[in-house]
Amino acid sequence: MLSRTGVATCENIESILPPKERLQKGPVAVIECFQQIPCNPCYSSCPRNAIKPFDDINDLPVLDYESCNGCGTCIHNCPGLAIFVVDETYTEEEALVKLPYEYTPLPKVGDLVEALDREGKKVGQAQVVKVQNAKGQDRTPVLWVSVSKHLSQQVRNIGMEG
């Protein structure tokens, strides 16, 4: 149970996962925010207004999967670092996962790294495809990593050095 372990359960994940048909169309945000806390930057930062307006600042975000194009602006704006973008159309065998990563050293493009799940356990290998660290991201770099397609909804971190 999430409130005891800090790890989202399968039911938690299923409740927010974009539908299969949407995942097959390309990159889309996966918002792993399951607790009502007073917080709305995902909504206010989305350039496409894909997150529905909050009636109350404590509302959970509701994503309009069709409006979201997986741009990832919400990833570095989410104070809880709880948003990921998954692209299951990346290649035939691989999916792309964009994840926030506030650790040093930053990996380099091309690096092969451990793919970690929500418990920090190694579930496979990931390759770093891109490291986004623009000034506007305010020191929350976003890593694009490619992983085996069946791991697209499991991989949420990479092995940290040091």
């Binding site: 005891r4 372990t5 607790q35 806390i37 989410c78 670092l81 970690l116 929500r118 920090g120």
Partner: peptide, 19 residues
């Protein structure tokens, strides 16, 4: 139960730290 925000907890867990 975890008293803090669960998003903070999830961040720590995926870095491999047990709670």
């Amino acid at each position: 139960h975890i008293g803090g925000y669960l998003v903070h907890a999830s961040k720590i867990r995926r870095a491999g730290v047990p709670i």
